[in-house]
């Protein structure tokens, strides 16, 4: 019976990885850019959620003297965080990536800019807010459902898993079934032909960043609700891991992000179930490395063919 409990935990962890991996994969799929700052956007999302929540609850933040019911606060925090986090992502794109793209700069320079932007977010946060950790307030009354046989599940866990799957279905729909999704896929093939077809390149790219960053914001709230201690470097490790998950799934493919994310969740929980938990990262990264050795382009990735 213990195994079901592990599966539930793995699904929850996998959901976080998947939600972040989706952001990586969306941007990569469209721009062929590894947005190394994405893990830190997730962190920023969690902090934004914190500040919105404490302001609404009247226990910190802007001290507007509000005293909202936690459930109502949650209902406002979620969309507010997603919008504000999306703004952060779009700001990065507007101030840093777009000027480089306009200059036709080498892809590498954009990647380094992204890496540095991530560092700035992390350390800027540390410098502004200090090293003390923030405790995320309880917004959701915890409900535990006993499934029998010693297996139990909290309402939060269910929400996290459902959110990840819903986001996946939504993005899959947008990318494969809508016009804007078609344009996104088009850009990944040929950035130069798309504007010639009358499609506004920058608008599509901004839309991509909005989608990816708001999902990171959502992941940030859910993560903060599940593990309510926030610190500036929380995005780094989970971000790198989610990124690797996206690559293992086949970066640029939405199914790959979901599969990679859940795979990583299952590997980690599986390792912890059998071995001491300190071995978790070692095993997780080794398995991912082996997968990449065997399938260099990931599970859903298609090898690029070279013509001569």
């Amino acid at each position: 019976m213990e195994i079901f409990q592990h599966i539930l935990n793995a699904l929850q962890f996998g959901s976080f990885y998947a939600l972040i991996a989706l952001g990586y994969t969306l941007v990569y799929g469209v721009l062929r850019l590894i947005n190394f700052a994405h893990g830190d956007i997730f962190m920023v999302g969690a902090y934004i959620a914190y500040f919105v929540a404490v302001t609404l609850l009247g226990i910190g933040g802007l001290h507007l003297g509000m005293d909202m019911h936690p459930a109502l606060a949650l209902a406002i925090t979620v969309p507010a965080t997603m919008i504000l986090t999306a703004l952060v992502g779009v700001a990065l794109e507007r101030t840093m990536y777009r000027p480089l793209r306009r200059k036709g700069a080498n892809r590498l320079y954009v990647v380094i800019t992204a890496l540095m932007a991530g560092l700035m977010l992390e350390n800027g946060n540390l410098a502004l807010l200090g090293a003390s950790r923030k405790r995320f307030p309880d917004l959701l009354e915890k409900v535990v459902w006993d499934l029998g046989g010693g297996v139990s599940v909290t309402n939060l866990k269910v929400i996290v898993i459902v959110a990840a799957i819903a986001v996946f279905l939504l993005l899959q729909f947008i990318v494969t079934r809508t016009k804007i999704g078609m344009a996104m896929r088009g850009i990944s093939y040929d950035k130069f032909a798309i504007p010639l077809m009358g499609i506004p390149l920058d608008t599509i790219i901004v839309f991509t960043f909005i989608l990816g960053s708001s999902m990171a914001g959502l992941a940030g709230i859910l993560f903060a609700m599940s593990y309510p201690i926030l610190e500036p470097y929380m995005g780094a490790l989970i971000g790198w891991k989610a990124f690797i998950a996206a690559v293992v799934g086949g970066i640029g493919d939405i199914r790959g992000a979901i599969v990679g994310g859940f795979l990583l969740g299952f590997i980690e929980i599986g390792v912890v179930a059998v071995f001491p938990s300190t071995l978790r990262d070692l095993f997780a990264f080794s398995v991912l490395l082996i997968i990449l050795w065997l399938r260099p382009t990931g599970i859903f990735g298609v090898a690029q063919t070279t013509k001569i």
């Binding site: 690797i244 300190t278 070692l282 490395l289 260099p296």
Partner: peptide, 23 residues
């Protein structure tokens, strides 16, 4: 493999070394 995928492999290698020594 080249490029982005190789970058991930180097990244994973870095993490593996660190967590191996941690253990």
């Amino acid at each position: 493999t080249r490029g982005d995928y190789l970058a991930i492999i180097t990244l994973a290698a870095n993490y593996i070394v660190i967590s191996a020594i941690n253990n």
